[in-house]
Amino acid sequence: MELAKSMMIILFTGILTDNFVLSKFLGICPFLGVSKTTSGSLGMGCAVTIVMVLATAVTYPLYHLFLVPMGLTYLNTILFILIIALFVQLIEMVLRKYIPALYKALGVYLPLITTNCAVLGVTLLNIENGYNFGEAIICALGGGLGFMIAMLIFSGVRGRLERCPVPKAFSGMPITLVAASIVSLSFVGFGGLVDGIFGAV
């Protein structure tokens, strides 16, 4: 019971209060770049979630079984980015060969994920926060789902924004950033929600 509770706390903290995009500023590039349409947001969100969970599942054991015993923990950035780059390629090939339908839906987004800071960020954060393996996976899942929710909400906002007359200097990216600021402000409202539901940690 305790275990389930702590898992739920990590999951919902990742999705709502510590949203990767809107409060940690990880993965801003795809958040602003791909969120023009709902289908694009959904595809990118799914692809990022899958890669985040799988990348954590691979890098976490590597760090603890390989880098820590050898005293090479300072190499984690290099190792993780290499693993992520290789891994994204691998997922792409596997999907293309065995699940062509899913590949068709997500394939375009996969190469863009290598340089997504949310993926490298979540693997590094899991190490930094000293999570155990289960918690690390849940944290990655929560981060990915939070990313997807933020993108979906924001794609709706942008749909409205396209049809609004805005001052010339603000049109395009500046007004998008201001809109993102308001969405981010609404997520501040979730602060304390997780503690309220599950009791203080």
């Binding site: 809107l22 409060s23 940690k24 500023f25 001052p167 010339k168 200097a169 603000f170 990216m173 500046p174 007004i175 998008t176 950033l177 201001v178 993102a180 600021s181 308001i182 981010s184 402000l185 501040v188």
Partner: peptide, 19 residues
């Protein structure tokens, strides 16, 4: 200094540069 402020200030600075 909240995250929202970051988005807002950056948007305004970019708009100012454009102007």
């Amino acid at each position: 200094i909240l995250p929202a402020g970051g988005f807002f200030v950056l948007g305004c600075v970019i708009a100012l540069v454009n102007k």
